[in-house]
Measured scan of single mutants.
Amino acid sequence: KEMRNAYWEIALLPNLNNQQKRAFIRSLYDDPSQSANLLAEAKKLNDAQA
């Protein structure tokens, strides 16, 4: 469930391009235990690109 939530949050971040989203989501599938960390990194990048 945590992975699914992280997937959708990443997919809906407005300032990431599709390539960036795909990279984060690929990492999510590679290591679901890192969901919270990956989401935090994606949000950080999203904010930096705002």
Rank of each mutant, 00 (worst) to 15 (best):
K1D: 14
K1Y: 02
K1F: 03
K1N: 10
E2I: 14
E2Y: 01
E2D: 13
E2M: 04
E2W: 01
E2P: 07
M3Q: 14
M3F: 07
M3W: 07
M3I: 15
R4Q: 13
R4P: 14
R4G: 13
R4A: 13
R4F: 15
R4M: 15
R4K: 13
R4I: 15
R4D: 11
N5D: 10
N5Q: 14
N5I: 12
N5V: 11
N5T: 13
N5E: 11
N5F: 11
A6Y: 10
A6F: 14
A6L: 12
A6K: 09
A6E: 05
A6D: 04
A6G: 04
A6Q: 06
Y7W: 14
Y7E: 15
Y7H: 13
Y7D: 02
Y7S: 12
Y7M: 14
Y7V: 05
W8L: 15
W8S: 08
W8F: 14
W8P: 01
W8E: 12
W8K: 15
W8M: 14
W8R: 14
E9Y: 13
E9I: 13
E9P: 02
E9V: 12
E9W: 07
E9F: 14
E9D: 05
E9C: 04
E9K: 08
I10H: 00
I10C: 01
I10Y: 00
I10V: 04
I10G: 01
I10Q: 00
I10W: 00
I10L: 08
A11S: 14
A11W: 14
A11C: 09
A11F: 13
A11L: 15
A11D: 04
A11T: 15
A11H: 14
A11E: 10
L12T: 12
L13R: 01
L13Y: 05
L13H: 04
L13N: 02
P14H: 05
P14D: 04
P14Q: 08
P14T: 07
N15D: 04
N15M: 05
N15K: 04
N15L: 03
N15E: 03
N15H: 10
N15S: 07
N15W: 10
N15F: 13
N15V: 02
N15Q: 04
L16K: 00
L16H: 00
L16C: 00
L16I: 05
L16Q: 00
L16M: 02
L16E: 00
L16V: 03
L16R: 00
N17F: 03
N17A: 05
N17V: 03
N18W: 12
N18R: 10
N18D: 08
N18G: 11
N18S: 14
N18I: 13
Q19A: 10
Q19H: 13
Q19N: 11
Q19D: 13
Q19I: 09
Q19T: 10
Q20L: 03
Q20C: 07
Q20T: 04
Q20R: 02
Q20G: 00
Q20W: 02
Q20H: 02
K21V: 02
K21L: 03
K21T: 02
K21S: 01
K21G: 00
K21Q: 01
K21A: 01
K21Y: 02
R22L: 14
R22K: 08
R22H: 15
R22S: 15
A23Q: 12
A23W: 10
A23Y: 10
A23H: 14
A23S: 13
A23K: 12
F24P: 01
F24I: 11
F24S: 03
F24N: 02
F24Q: 02
I25P: 01
I25C: 04
I25F: 15
I25E: 06
I25K: 02
I25H: 10
R26T: 11
R26Q: 15
R26F: 11
R26P: 01
S27N: 08
S27I: 11
S27W: 13
S27M: 07
S27V: 07
S27K: 14
S27D: 10
S27A: 15
L28P: 00
L28H: 01
L28Q: 01
L28Y: 03
L28M: 11
L28N: 00
L28K: 00
Y29P: 01
Y29W: 14
Y29G: 06
Y29S: 11
Y29L: 13
D30M: 11
D30K: 05
D30P: 02
D30L: 12
D30Q: 12
D30N: 10
D31H: 12
D31C: 07
D31G: 03
D31V: 04
D31Q: 07
D31R: 05
P32F: 08
P32D: 03
P32T: 03
P32W: 09
P32M: 06
P32L: 04
S33M: 09
S33D: 11
S33L: 06
S33V: 04
S33F: 05
S33G: 10
S33K: 09
S33H: 09
Q34H: 09
Q34V: 06
Q34D: 07
S35F: 08
S35H: 10
S35I: 14
S35V: 12
S35P: 03
S35R: 11
S35N: 08
S35C: 07
S35T: 07
A36V: 12
A36H: 10
A36P: 08
A36R: 09
A36N: 09
A36Y: 07
N37Q: 09
N37M: 12
N37E: 11
N37D: 07
N37L: 11
L38R: 04
L38Q: 03
L38V: 08
L38Y: 04
L38M: 07
L38H: 04
L39N: 01
L39M: 09
L39H: 02
L39V: 11
L39R: 05
L39I: 08
A40N: 13
A40L: 11
A40F: 08
A40K: 12
A40W: 06
A40P: 01
E41L: 07
E41C: 09
E41R: 09
E41A: 12
A42I: 02
A42D: 00
A42V: 02
A42Y: 02
A42M: 01
K43M: 04
K43E: 04
K43A: 04
K43R: 08
K43Q: 06
K43P: 00
K44W: 11
K44H: 08
K44F: 08
K44R: 13
K44E: 07
K44V: 09
K44D: 06
L45R: 03
L45A: 04
L45E: 03
L45T: 05
L45D: 02
L45Y: 03
L45S: 02
L45C: 03
N46S: 06
N46M: 01
N46G: 02
N46V: 01
N46W: 01
N46T: 01
N46R: 01
N46D: 05
D47L: 08
D47S: 09
D47C: 06
D47A: 09
D47Y: 07
D47T: 07
A48H: 09
A48T: 12
A48R: 09
A48N: 11
A48I: 11
A48W: 11
Q49M: 10
Q49L: 11
Q49I: 07
Q49H: 04
Q49G: 06
Q49F: 05
Q49C: 06
Q49K: 05
Q49Y: 08
A50G: 12
A50Y: 05
A50P: 06
A50L: 09
A50H: 12
A50R: 11
